[in-house]
């Protein structure tokens, strides 16, 4: 299971890449593997406001469906336009080509609540 060092993580299995006040969000390798073959992705519109802890999108596999939660509050500045037509990218490349949205963060301090790679690794071990 891949857990890149440079990312931060939520308990709902989203990853976050921080670049200044823009964060990129996707779901983790663990999440894609638990869901299985992903067949559908629903993303918010560019410009939409998202609230920390609230669902902003949906990923579906053949037999499961999962909300994707915003790790922080802010405004959607870009979405991965490729995903709706090629949702399987989340399975093959969860941390790169499978990114979902970019959010302009309101308050960078919110990011302090997220886990780093080690903490997430530990979190996964305890979840089992």
């Amino acid at each position: 299971m891949e857990i890149p060092e440079e990312l931060k993580f939520t308990e709902d299995h989203e990853w976050v890449l921080v670049e200044d006040d823009i964060v990129t969000v996707g779901i983790t390798d663990f999440a894609q593997e638990s869901l299985g073959d992903i067949v559908f992705v629903e993303l918010p519109n560019v410009g939409a406001k998202v609230d920390a802890g609230k669902a902003f999108g949906v990923v579906e596999s053949v037999k499961a469906v999962s909300d994707v939660y915003a790790p922080i509050s802010g405004q959607v500045v870009e979405i991965n336009e490729e995903l709706p037509d090629a949702p399987e990218v989340i399975n093959t490349s969860p941390y790169e080509d499978g990114w979902m949205v970019k959010i302009k963060v309101e308050d960078l301090a919110d990011l302090d609540d997220l886990m780093d790679a080690n903490a997430y690794q530990e979190f996964l071990e305890n979840e089992d």
Partner: peptide, 9 residues
């Protein structure tokens, strides 16, 4: 498209 249905959702 079963994820619309009651046995999953």
């Amino acid at each position: 498209l079963s994820t619309r249905e009651q046995h999953i959702r």
